[in-house]
């Protein structure tokens, strides 16, 4: 009896692992930046290239950093949620315009709305590398001390915003 039970048991264990594996997303690589200070940057603003913004300038508030580009199709998917988020005035969202062209980015924002409290330009993708960006869009939650507390890869959904990001923001704001 046990002779037949052992292969069955092995089979069940393998199925268990494979089943669990199906629901894992290999694209969601855990970021080593969670809990670390947000990498410093000094980047020109999209609307006023002469004006340099540093990560340090944004300290003292909880803010979101949203990496976007006009060439990025999934960015369009999340864009309405960002516009809505800004309308509700819950947390300032700063944009990192990643490897984009200024004119294209401005046109894109003109067409779809600009939810950003400020937009910096990372034309070469260098700051993107520092932030471990590998799939635009990406969104970071950064606390008052400038520490990255959360990172989402891929387009935001109402679920992620309402269940994960906003509760965290509220907690960090108090």
């Amino acid at each position: 009896m046990t002779r037949h039970l052992i292969p069955l048991l092995v089979f069940v264990v393998i199925v268990g692992f494979l089943w669990a594996g199906l629901s894992l997303n290999p694209r969601e690589v855990p970021s080593p930046l969670i809990g670390k200070p947000a990498p410093e940057f000094a980047l020109p603003q999209l609307r006023d290239g002469g004006n340099i913004v540093r990560a340090a300038d944004l300290r003292g508030q909880v803010w979101l950093l949203n990496v976007f580009a006009s060439w990025c199709t999934p960015c369009l998917e999340e864009h309405p949620y960002l516009v809505d988020l800004t309308r509700r005035n819950l947390v300032p969202v700063y944009g990192l315009n990643y490897k984009d062209q200024r004119s294209a980015a401005l046109e894109w924002l003109g067409r779809h709305g600009d939810p950003y409290a400020g937009i910096v330009v990372d034309a070469e993708g260098r700051t993107g590398i520092e932030y471990g960006v590998y799939g635009v869009p990406e969104t970071f939650v950064i606390d008052k001390l400038g520490v990255i507390r959360f990172k989402h890869i891929g387009p935001l959904t109402p679920h992620i915003l309402n269940e994960e990001i906003l509760p965290l923001v509220r907690k960090l704001q108090t």
Binding site: P32, P39, Y134
Partner: peptide, 8 residues
């Protein structure tokens, strides 16, 4: 590279 992207 590990600092930005992790051991992955």
């Amino acid at each position: 590279m590990v600092a930005s992207y992790g051991d992955f």
